[in-house]
Design a binder for these strands. Structure first.
Length: 981
RNA sequence: GGGCGAUUGGCGCAGUGGUAGCGCAGCAGCUUUACACGCUGUGGGUCGGGGGUUCGAAUCCCUCAUCGCCCA
């Protein structure tokens, strides 16, 4: 048999258990198991990009979901955590196109054509599409992988089409020529949400133009975009502006393009209320083709729309021969040069403004007039109400305001994209030779009934359909399908129900067990950056198509930043690969470290130290179990109430308190509070105090005894596929014989000691078996390993932890019966706390006297009460005392250091080598602090209105506080006097 | 310009009216019945500034400042 691993070895343990969970189908949700006593719990994963790789953001987000899912399983719920990926239109098409260009396979996507490129992307998806899901497995994510969905699965695509057709039928989807956000790099329209405003340093150019009708009169125009001058079709002033109002109706000479022969175009001066007096010079150049606000002015005044910038961001012939073919930014420079040459440019000054950038391609977007599909949002009122009314809760709740504000002012959603990868718009059009023939076709279409929705404009018919047969029909009869695809979010907004097999047919859906059991979902965990993109839209789709909200709670994570507070980015190189961290520290360590650093509603400053801390924590857990295991004895023996020591009751009460705290933390989604509780309970309460106190009872290990029973993976009872405990038969049983007799007392004494030790071990088992369960959602692998290794799984029914800790019941705070039975009275908390206060103060005395921690010394304790022998033993052990003399009559002589504790006074004779000067200084300092405190309390009590107005218990508390401080002062004073003698 | 959030020891955070706390880092000591990925002890903060309410303010109100996010 191998040596005891001194440290936890996550690498082998983690993959072993993940395989086990999969084989045992632990993550598979079965709607048939849902009942009144076994409620459903569901989460749908925010689908990562199919080409994505795991980032720390995913780690945070998915760890939270896993914690919720695992906690719900332990709460006895039927859990569905539904995973999947998103086709991510622009991002994915870009990746594949770029790769092919780099490899020299194509120069442009047109080299391949639509069908071939889409086929290539599918190949790519098949090859690399699963990567991120595999990585989630390394993290321990307990998703139901049998239900993995992709937004372009055939069934899912069918949902998208159905919804499109339905909204089209309702008149909410329409096609129109509008100003849209155009991405000149990706060559597609974008929604408003895909545009991020960035501050940009540029120039404000002031140039003058002559009024044609009044030669010699000039107007000065300020602009940041002189390259668009050739597209100007008017200049506008505010009709109330006394400087310019009289010029309305006249014309100016447009300086660009420079016409050859030189006959500059004249454009009108118009009056428009929307012109801001204050901005620039108060004269606005109007470029209807290239600016949203200008377009609206143009509409109001019937101005011509002159496009001078092409889709790819290059200037065209209408911009004049100087600018023609130049990129828009190069054109800006040249336009400035031209204005200078003409003597038109008056000045240019540095200017910072906000420019919309394409979120994907990171280039400035170009407002552009184009024909696109738009959606007028459905179910807006219900969607607003459910959040405002508290039916759906946001954590932290301030996001509810942000949501409400956005919902209050939403604009129609531009849903078409000029891409090939995605859901193609299910609309076919045909232009017929004559209106007559078109009308005949209408009759044919009408025969198709519900399957098709159409409308005719003259000779042209557009028809929308989500029906297989009709698609075929259209293809056969020479109709043309709209070339555009839908915005990716137009598919992901259906995620909560489309992933569950929604069809849109009421009868079918009513018989869909998954949908019936798991919709609405319980929790959604996502980043606030997609609150509009995704969350808000899912809510609207939920109401529109399911008649109900899609989730009850939304948890918004923070953003992961580096320890300097900068966002994680590839270019900064400050984004560690989670898989490297998992390889180095283990997934449990990464999970715990990240969760501990992630308070609700705050960004997370990531530092590898967090992960290191997580690893240390797991190691501590490992070793605490190892220590228990070294004691031998039966697993989870009976606890004999009559043998419970104060320390045993104390740790049980602390466990009870920890469970209560955890319940609160979970109810409020405060995960960092939960980890803080676990950390404190386990380190400070269990390891530092309780285990140490047990050493007063546990037998000292015989030096020549064989190695204690090992706790390692081989023995940890992984079951084979047949459900049998594969390892148990041939391996040594986990628990060796009874505790060895030790000590020199008689037979009775030995038996008594052994029984006392066995009882302490039983308490340890009780606490550890609870602790492992409390930890399991956070650190699933190590807890599963220990759960089996410690033998806690053995006596449990399969469904209650016998197979896996993930099905063990989540601990409940102890009820009155339990506490009565074990006489867990709060007085034990106070008593043991006081004991530990005494120990702390005694240890401090040792340290102040510079006595090495390993040196045994004599203490005298002047106690104000009788102490049971165990408590004396514990104090003695924890003080590392050679002897602990209990003497209520003790009068200290010279060279005795002392301290007043809650329980009484503790003395440490220093046997001659006391540093009188040093000790005097120390005590003087302490006295000083005490006096400050006394003054503070005295001042408060001396205030007449204090006594009058303060609640009685506050007054009593202050008086008691004063008494305590005075007693301490007297003690210290006595000690100082003693030193002087 | 509007809204939201933050500001507490070197760092990260908790603390919503009653003695300022935790973790990390620091310092000192320690192979002590598991764990040096550990143990013990310890120093360090007038709670961003100013004003107000109150017997009493990190906490409530006003105001200013700095940083961050969202919207226009």
């Amino acid at each position: 048999m191998s040596e005891i691993p001194k440290a936890n070895e996550p690498q082998s343990v983690e993959s072993k258990w993940y395989d086990f969970w999969l084989k045992q189908e632990c993550f598979t949700a079965d709607p048939a198991r849902v009942s009144a006593t076994r409620p459903a719990y569901s989460i749908v994963i925010p689908p990562p990009n199919v080409t994505g790789v795991l980032t720390l953001g995913h780690v945070l987000n998915n760890t939270i979901q896993d914690i919720l899912a695992r906690k719900a399983r332990m709460d006895g719920k039927e859990v569905l955590w539904l995973p999947g990926t998103d086709h991510a239109g622009i991002a994915t098409q870009n990746v594949v196109e770029k790769t092919m260009k780099k490899a020299g396979e194509i120069k442009h996507r047109n080299d391949l054509g639509r069908e071939a490129l889409v086929a290539k992307i599918w190949d790519w998806k098949e090859k690399y599409g699963g990567i991120i899901l595999q990585q989630l497995k390394a993290l321990g994510a307990s998703c139901d992988w049998t239900r993995t969905r992709f937004t372009m699965d055939p069934e899912y695509s069918r949902c998208v089409q159905k919804v499109f057709v339905d909204l089209y039928k309702k008149g909410l989807i329409y096609r129109g020529k509008r100003m849209v956000n155009w991405c000149p790099a990706s060559l597609t329209a974008l929604s408003d949400e895909e545009v991020t405003m960035k501050e940009q340093k540029g120039f404000m150019y002031h140039f003058k133009v002559e009024v044609a009708e009044v030669p010699g009169t000039f107007l000065t125009i300020a602009t940041t975009r002189p390259e668009t001058i050739p597209g100007d079709t008017a200049v506008a002033v505010n009709p109330k502006d006394p400087r310019y109002a009289h010029l309305i109706g006249k014309h100016i000479v447009r300086p660009l393009p420079v016409e050859v022969p030189r006959e500059q175009k004249l454009i009108p001066i118009i009056g428009d209320d929307h012109v801001d007096f204050e901005f620039g010079t108060g004269v606005l150049k109007v470029t209807p083709a290239h600016d949203k606000a200008d377009f609206e002015i143009g509409q109001r005044h019937q101005l011509p729309v002159v496009e001078v910038i092409e889709a790819d961001g290059k200037m065209n012939a209408l911009a004049g021969q100087d600018l023609n073919g130049l990129d828009r930014f190069a054109a800006r420079k040249l336009a400035v040069e031209k204005l200078t040459e003409l003597g038109s440019l008056e000045k240019q000054e540095p200017y910072t403004n906000n420019v919309g950038y394409s979120e994907r391609a990171d280039v400035p977007i170009e407002p552009r007039l184009s024909e696109q599909w738009f959606l007028k949002y459905p179910s807006v009122d219900a969607s607003k109400k459910c959040v405002a009314g508290g039916e759906m809760k946001f954590f932290p709740d301030r996001w509810a305001k942000v949501y409400d504000h956005w919902m209050g002012g939403i604009q129609d959603w531009c849903i078409s994209r000029q891409l090939w990868w995605g859901h193609r718009i299910p609309v076919w059009t045909a232009e017929f030779p004559s209106e007559e023939i078109a009308k005949q076709s209408e009759v044919l279409l009408r025969e198709l009934g519900d399957k098709v929705t159409f409308h005719r404009e003259g000779k042209k018919i557009s028809a929308a359909t989500a029906h297989d047969g009709t698609e075929h029909f259209f293809a056969m009869h020479g109709w043309h399908q709209d070339p555009d695809v839908l915005d990716t979010w137009f598919s992901s907004w259906l995620w909560p129900f489309a992933t569950m097999g929604w069809t849109g047919d009421k009868d079918t859906d009513a018989k869909n067990p998954t949908l019936q059991a798991f919709y609405p979902t319980t929790d959604l965990v996502t980043g606030p950056d997609i609150i509009f993109f995704w969350v808000a839209r899912m809510i609207m789709a939920g109401y529109e198509y399911m008649g109900d909200l899609p989730f009850r709670n939304v948890y918004f994570t923070g953003i992961i930043r580096d320890k300097q507070g900068r966002k994680m980015s590839k270019s900064l190189g400050n984004s560690p690969d989670p898989l490297d961290l998992i390889a180095k520290y283990g997934a449990d360590a990464l999970r715990f470290g990240v969760m501990r650093a992630a308070p609700l509603g705050q960004d997370i400053l990531f530092d590898e130290q967090n992960v290191e801390l997580g690893r240390n924590f797991c190691n501590k857990l490992w070793n605490a179990c190892r220590f228990r295991q070294m004691q031998g004895g039966e697993a989870q023996g009976e606890i004999d109430v009559s043998k419970l020591r104060s320390d045993d009751k104390w740790i049980l009460l602390k466990l009870h308190a920890a469970i209560k705290e955890l319940d609160t933390a979970f109810a409020e989604y405060r995960f960092s509070d939960a980890t803080a509780t676990l950390y404190r309970f386990f380190y400070s309460e269990y390891c530092d105090w309780y285990v140490e106190s047990c050493k007063a009872v546990l037998p000292r290990p015989a030096t020549d005894a064989p190695s204690p029973s090992p706790l390692n993976g081989e023995r940890a009872g992984v079951r084979g596929e047949d459900g049998q405990d594969a390892g148990a038969v041939e391996n040594t049983p986990p628990h060796p014989g009874p505790l060895p007799p030790v000590g020199r007392g008689g037979e009775g004494e030995d038996a008594r000691k052994a029984a006392a030790a066995a009882n302490v071990v039983a308490v340890m088992d009780f606490v550890l078996s609870h602790t492992l369960r409390l930890f399991h959602p956070f650190v699933p692998f190590i807890t599963e390993e220990l759960w089996h290794g410690m033998g806690y799984a053995t006596d449990m029914p399969d469904a209650q932890g016998g197979k896996s800790i993930m099905h063990a019941p989540w601990p409940k705070p102890f009820d009155t019966d339990f506490r009565d039975h074990y006489s867990l009275d709060d007085c034990y908390l106070e008593f043991v706390n006081a004991k530990f206060d005494l120990v702390s103060k005694g240890r401090n005395l040792r340290a102040e006297a510079r006595i090495a921690a390993n040196k045994k010394v004599k203490f005298i304790f002047k106690s104000d009460r009788d102490l049971p022998p165990n408590d004396i033993e514990v104090i003695k052990l924890l003080l590392n005392a050679e002897t602990l003399e209990i003497n209520p009559e003790y009068v200290p002589g010279k060279n005795v250091s002392s301290v007043k504790a809650e329980m009484g006074e503790l003395y440490l004779p220093l046997e001659g080598h006391v540093d009188v000067a040093g000790e005097t200084v120390r005590l003087a300092k302490e006295l000083e602090k005490i006096v400050v405190e006394i003054t503070k309390v005295e001042q408060k009590l001396a205030n007449p209105s204090f006594a009058q107005k303060v609640p009685a218990e506050v007054l009593t508390e202050h008086r008691k506080r004063l008494e305590d401080w005075i007693a301490k002062r007297d003690h210290v004073q006595k000690a100082i006097d003693g030193l002087k003698e």
